[in-house]
Design a protein around this nucleic acid. Sequence first.
DNA 1: TAACACTTGTTTTTT
DNA 2: ACAAGTGTTA
Length: 797
Amino acid sequence: MRAVFFIKKICTFVSMQKNETNSETSILTNLNDAQRAAVEFCDGPSLVIAGAGSGKTRVLTYKIAYLLEQGLPPYYILSLTFTNKAAREMKSRIAELVGEKKARSLWMGTFHAIFARILRKEGEAIGFKPNFTIFDTADSRNLIKLIIKDMKLDDKQYRQNAIHGQISKAKNSLITPAMYAANSELLEYDRRARQPQLFEIYQRYQNRLRAANSMDFDDLLMYTNILFRDHKDILEKYRNQFQYILVDEYQDTNFSQHLIVKQIADAHHRVCVVGDDAQSIYSFRGANIDNILNFKSNFPETKVFKLEQNYRSTQNIVNAANSLIRQNTEQIEKDVFSENEVGDKLEILGTFSDFEEGLVVANKIARMRLERHDTYSDFAILYRTNAQSRIFEDALRKKNIPYRIYGGKSFYQRKEIKDVISYFRLIVNPSDEEAFRRVINYPTRGIGNVTVGKIASSAELHNVSLWEVLSSPIEYNLEINAGARNRLATFQSLISGFIEQRDTISAYEIAQEVIKKSGISHEAYSDLTPEGLSRSQNIQELINAMEEFVSTRQEEGDENILLTDFLSEVSLLTDQDTEDDEEAQKVTLMTVHSAKGLEFNHVFVVGMEEDLFPSSMAKSENRGLEEERRLFYVALTRARKTCTVTYAKSRFKNGQTNSAKISRFVMEIDQAYVSEESILNYSNKGTSSADDFWGTMRQQRVKRESLGRAATKDIAPQRAPERRGNIVSVNNAAPSMPLSQEAKELQVGNIIEHERFGRGEVTSIELSGNDRRAFVEFESAGKKQLLLKFAKFNIIE
DNA sequence: TAACACTTGTTTTTT
DNA sequence: ACAAGTGTTA
């Protein structure tokens, strides 16, 4: 209560001395007018529309620092971010401004992390024990698969991923199973979609989760809403505590998240949301752009601030991105501009194949690094799908360029790690069905599907957890033979032993016990295959991480760090959260989605082809298409200095090479901001689509090569020779790519040392397009053609 | 029950 | 290409 007055006082205090520069307002001098205005306004709801690169994080950081500096206790501030990483970074920046101690007691984190913490404390009010475990996506899907099987439904008609998506959507819209079953519109929709039983799957899924004392990601938000809805005393408590709420990336919140914010903020309206509608890219996950578009109607007295000056990028990049996003219809009007240098124009490079795309990018990175005296960490390659990373990895490795990949399978999703973590989950929460199923026969101990099936049906019959059946097999009439019974009893006492230690010894200590006694370490160490080795390394890494977790927490003053502490921390971590070594000079490879909020001097947006970017999935709906366009906008605006956009004429996908067409988005960029060479390459499209860029000569050659194949599409470049690693393929891409010094000087008769083929003599050189190719007789590798633009070799004599 | 060969579908993005 | 699922054999 006192805090309410407190805030009012701060605000009047500040507005009185707005124009003075004394020590109290000193932090504000680092801000521009718009930013400062947004920071200073703290007596009501505010919406900060922050264009790309306009200092959004800066505003949030300074705003929090500002509130703290004025004396508002940190634990009164709730600050919600989109990723753990963002939270961590913001925290450390605030610590620099106001000191470590205050920063540490801020409530700052992702929606999921913060409300998981609150649910652990308050969950008993809605029937959850504080040791509940969290199902990740894979766990959820496994459970859904089991349910579909139990219900004897056709798994082609009810595909687990689709079902999970539907359930997730329902949860994010706060539709409980009961509401779902009562909603004739939804039922009708499902009937038409030939999934009439969907509501029952949802129902059962939710029951099973509850029986397992577990929540999935969406539950963390949904149950928070339910908790606040049904327990006003608890809501009141947090309303009083969170006197000021800040939300980052508001354009990516879903209804469930929005309502949590609203429920808390309704008491005092001191809420500041920051976002950019032009960067809303998560609607597939239920994010609702309307949250930001309609924020004002929820809080009518909302003050809107617009940050329009981009400090990140050159004028060319900002203008190019603006010209793209202008094609969208739904957006808040704003005028993002840059006063940085005009900078280089965008470069658009078409290549013959995805393979060549990799080489072109790798080469350009190598060249630019030297020309511009930048480090590898100034470069990023951004793609639409994780599957595209492979080809760039190969190309970079070939050129000895260090890189770091984000995304894909995260550390915690690796099988061996999930297995170990499942032991932890079962120990902390023996009801956890997924964990139980995962570990009961890992390492193999002769308990197969049949036995597990018996336990499961008995558990369902008696309405208890699998663990309880396992613990009292006789009581629950478990009919199995003596051998199986023995093995079950051994497993049961193994886990019971861990459970007894769970609350006394540290997370690190119990983890070591688990590895040893469960037989995991024995199995891991006896596997000497390369994969086995990497698996035991991963397990070791997990143990090391736990040791570090325990010791840092102890240094911070906590005493006994239990397994449950570690588990609740780790369940919400993703790959993005693994500490990156700042010093490492590596090229960054990631999806555009995970690049949100980051920036690099030089950005390569790759794979700009129809059906890939925009993805074929998104194209059917206009809204989907606009989201893809925003995604491309996000990609372009990551760049500070240069931006290169690439596409390939053919791409290997799902075991097949398909011909591809340049993305419509590339055409939408105003050509005034695109380098002239690039324009020549792609702009004369309209005349004949088959005749663009590549020139007739090249296509004819390709057709000749693919002769005899049924070529239904315009080109069907099957198994390009480069797949095998020989750099002999057609190419005339990358007009901007100059030959290396070596390549320029190369003459017939030279002896060269090639990176892979070894020594060889140049027998002839010919011109192909605007490039040269050399025919080389290698001592061991035989006759090869080298494309001088790409070939890596030294002239020996 | 487990190990293996064979078939099938699958890919958008992530807390 | 690849992973997951299915079926066959020991």
